[in-house]
Design a binder for these strands. Sequence first.
DNA 1: CCACTATATTGATGAATGTCAATGTTGCGG
DNA 2: CCGCAACATTGACATTCATCAATATAGTGG
Lengths: 115, 115
Amino acid sequence: MSSLPVLEPVVDTTCCPPAAPALGAAEAQSTAAVFKALADPNRLRLLSIVKAAESGESCVCDLTQPLDLGQPTVSHHLKILVDAGLLHREKRGTWAYYSLVPGALERIGELLESL
Amino acid sequence: MSSLPVLEPVVDTTCCPPAAPALGAAEAQSTAAVFKALADPNRLRLLSIVKAAESGESCVCDLTQPLDLGQPTVSHHLKILVDAGLLHREKRGTWAYYSLVPGALERIGELLESL
DNA sequence: CCACTATATTGATGAATGTCAATGTTGCGG
DNA sequence: CCGCAACATTGACATTCATCAATATAGTGG
């Protein structure tokens, strides 16, 4: 390594200053994953129903009918919401009960402010 | 209309009470549209860069390089953000300047609370 | 009027996604 | 042990989406 390449700084401020580095690529990907979970109307309705339940939890059988979707599809959406950290799953007997993860929705608001 | 059909109430409370109607289908769709716009890492970075700009606005030429994307792709993402009501577009001369719509991010937090 | 620059639009392509039918798994009652 | 009910998983299919190359549009300067 005898000759270092002469890299010119390339300082063409043609338009505006480059500004701060802002959001990193990896950070953006994990944040986008949360919004991907919210980017479906049926998943939003699932969250809404679970949130509105008196006991704070709902089983799959209560979620299938109001959404007019097949049971496998509802289970699929619920899994996405659980993986995103928005819902909690607890199996009691034959039933699976889903409930909102406390503070999960509030944390999304903070994600937006930290952009 | 002489004979009203005798529809049985079908009251099988096998699991839990049906709970409140919660979020409507149409409402869920428009809300999901906003989150769809946020469900991409490159669009989140665009929002972040625009937000971090000193002047409060950025032109496309400043957004292409840090994202390592082609110019048509960046324009495409910006259009999606504008259509979602998150960015404002103003063309001055040859350049197009994008800026955050005031209060747009805050309004998303309210969307989550109204689930 | 003619290049040149910045941005938008179009068309194509591969990847991701939502949905369902069919099947697998688990827990309960007889 | 057997059958049933609730839920999850798999595979297939159609749709949507992110990206790029090529082209179109609009504004600027000569």
